[in-house]
Structures are given as structure tokens and as C-alpha cells.
Design a protein around this nucleic acid. Sequence first.
DNA 1: TCTGGGGTCCTAGGACCC
DNA 2: TCTGGGGTCCTAGGACCC
Length: 476
Amino acid sequence: MRGDPSILHVDLDAMFAAVEQRDKVSLRGKPVVVGGLAGRGVVATASYEARAFGVHSAMPMSQARRRSPPGTAYLTPRFPAYKRTSEVVMRLLGEVSPLVEQVSIDEAYVDLAVTGHDLSTAGVTELARQIKAEIAAATGGVTGSIGAASSKLLAKIGSDLHKPDGLTVVPAGQELAVLHPLPVSRLGGVGPATEQRLRRSGVRTVGDLARVPLDDLVDWFGTAHGQGLFRLARARDDRPVVSEREAKSVSAEETFDVDLTDPVRLNRELDLLAARVAGRLRAGGLTGRTVNIKVRHHDFTTVTRAVTRDQPTDDGRLVAQLARRLLAEVDTSSGIRLLGVGVSTLADFAQDDLFSGSFPELGGLFGGPVAPLTEFPVAEAPGAGVAVEVLPAAPPMAEEVAERRDVAAPVWRTGQDVRHDEHGVGWVWGSGLGLVTVRFEGPLTAPGPVRTFPVGDPLLHPADPPDWTGRGTPGR
DNA sequence: TCTGGGGTCCTAGGACCC
DNA sequence: TCTGGGGTCCTAGGACCC
């Protein structure tokens, strides 16, 4: 905690609704609800006129419609417009200080300590007043509330204290006086579950929380959360303002208007989501090793599945393929309301390029760069079967051998998958390293020639993989 | 017509390695 | 041949935030 109120928290008031009211005169002074208008939509932002009727963010739209008076405007979000307004404000804040942490599209912390501004309470108050006026002028009337304090915690609480169009400066030394009367739910990180647990022990205000021993908090909430609450209740918060944070995951998900059961349809949706995620990865110059799916059942129970590969990817077809495998592990027969695809364990460079050369020596497979996808000519044994054995690189696993006489069907063993396309080219598809032995056989006769290939990584193959689904490549 | 979409962080358990 | 302990990676789930 600092000795000056040198951290600002700037929060635009009901931003989505405010932009709509700015852009359409007839909406001013009226209840405006922005969010998903379809059956399962929720409220993203309600204007203050709508909030008076009990409408708030995250409320189901159906409920918002019941609460709102006639004449309420229901609008689908126009993100590009909000983004432009956000950029105007962030640019403005960047002129106040070089250290600005944008938390979301409508919120940011500004560190004044790295500037030459007067950090007295009066000085900061005047500065915040100016910033508020500039925001309103630059955005055409969208207002922001500002809190200034000696920590992020108090700055954020301050900006919330007199919304909308509010300004609260917490003088150094006054933190506990401001904090302790507030309900615990005002602390960042205290949601419904934490609030409920605290209430069970008679804790309602931050002041109450400050009287709970550390051991109890750790008991109830675990080490990290427990210690965090202990500190926050005492206004101990030295989290720095950080301007750049690296993304940790990229994901896309969709809630369907009606629950889906058709596996073909589900797979198609998965492909679309995978393509969206991959496109955003590429746009951000990112690649990731872990592919996740999220499945929400009709009863809102949610499961996730994940698989981590050795090499990162930004290839939508590969993400889709892995996502389909993961989905195959989940029982979808009773109806799916939401499907999601994500990529995590991100690397910020495309590793593909490093290994797109020729096959390395076998020795290189063990710990070194991996080979491209292994191809083998199925046509070498026309009209015959092909036996494929996949031997993992690690000797202890060598007894796990996948064997299959018909490579048209997938082989599921040791994470490997064998296919062939209509051109008579077989593919080994998997993330493991090792050797694949292909034995070409005549029908019901003695084994034919045996060839051994290093198993590489499909991601690294420069050519388009074949369409294993038989339904065409997921389109864009 | 209850419950969006994009994220972050934490925990717990198991595998694996030394 | 009764078995320890720490570190790391991975997966699944949950709480939380805007």
C-alpha cells in the first residue's frame, strides 16, 4: 500500500447502453437493455433507467423482459462501436500516464506514481475531475466513474461507490474507514459461493471479515483464497498496475437455441468453433499445445475434456480433429445446450516453421525435433490388407502395440490413429513419438514387405491432411 | 423458454521422474 | 520384494470477473 492515492480506477458507466443512447437520440432517458435477444440470451448491460426496474447484467433476457416497462429498447450488442469508444478512452488515459492496465473493454487502472502529477488528495481529485470531463467530451457523452486510492482494491471500490458519473478519492490513511462498513461481496474475488460461506459464520461486512483468524479463512477457502481475503480485509494490497499481460488461452463457445443431440450436427458445430479459435490464434500470432472442449448438458451440468500435444498448433483442422476425439468421450445423447472449444498452453511463436524440413535421423526423435507426418503407400499392396503396428518411443510401453488389418478404420491405441485417403496414401495421425511398422499383406496369405517409418507430428506436415470425416473440410 | 461468452486463477489427484 | 518425498506436468472441475 502506498502513501498517496496514486492509483486510479476508471470504469465507464453502463457502457454498452450508454453508447447506444449516445448514438440514437430517441433512446436517451429510456430503459435500454443490451444483450442476447434469442431465447437463451442474457443481459450484457442495462441502462440506469432499466436498472431502476431491477434489470442487471447476467440476468436472463426473458426475465429482463418481464421486469422492464413498455417502451424498453432491447438491443443486440454492437461490439465494434464499443471497441471504438473504448479505444478513445484508453488513448486518453495513456496521455495521463504511461502505465495503464486495461482490465476489460470498459475498465482500466492508471498508475499516477510514474508521472509528475501532484499526488496530494486535492491534486488527484482535480486530475480525476479533468479526466472525467475529457472522457465525456471525447466519447460524446459516455461518462466514467473514477476511484483513486493507494491500492487497486480501494481504487476499484472507490469507482463503484458513487456510480454513475462518480468520483471518489480515498485519502491515504482512510482505507479501513471506507472498507470495513462495506458488505464482503464488494471485495474482488468474493462471489456468491464465498459470500454464502462467510454468511454461515456470521460474516457480512469487511469489518466482520477482518476479525476472522487467518487459520479459519484458510480452512474454509484454501491457502490462496484464504490468505487473499485476510489481506484484503486489512486493505493490504500491493498488486502492481501492469500494462501488458499475455493471453493464456483462446476459446469460443456457443449456446444453442435448442439442445442438440445429433452427433453429426455436434461435430459440425465443433468444427466451426475450432476454425474460429484457430483464426484468432493466427491473428494473435499464437499457437497452443492443449485443446479443450466444454460440453454443457441439458441440465446445465458441464464437463470439460482436454488433451495436450507435444507441439503447439494454430491449425483449425487439427484443433477440430482433436476436439472431435474429445467429444466422442462424452455422452451427448440426452441433449447438449452448449459446446465450446479452446486452446491453451500457449506459445507466442509458430513452432511449425522450425521443423518443417526433412525427416531427422531416428535418433533425433528422442528428445529432439520430431519428423513430419508419416505417410506410407497403401497402394503397395493392391487389394490387400495392411497391418500397422505403432511402437511408442519409450521402451517400457513397447508391449502396447496397435495392430489393425484395415487401415480405413481408425486405430485407437497408444494415442495413434491410422487412416488412408482415396489416393492410396496411409497416414499416421497422432502426437506420440516412436516407430510405425507397416506390413503389407496379401489377402489371408503370408506377410508381405515390411517397412518402418518414424512417427512424426501431423501438425508439421506441410500439405493438407486428407479428409477423414468423409464430409468435407470444415468450411469458413 | 432461467442461467452468454470470453477469460483468469486455484485445487486436487494421478502419472512420472529422480 | 512392505516403499519416501519432492517437483513437474496434465486433467477436471469450480469460483470468479466483466
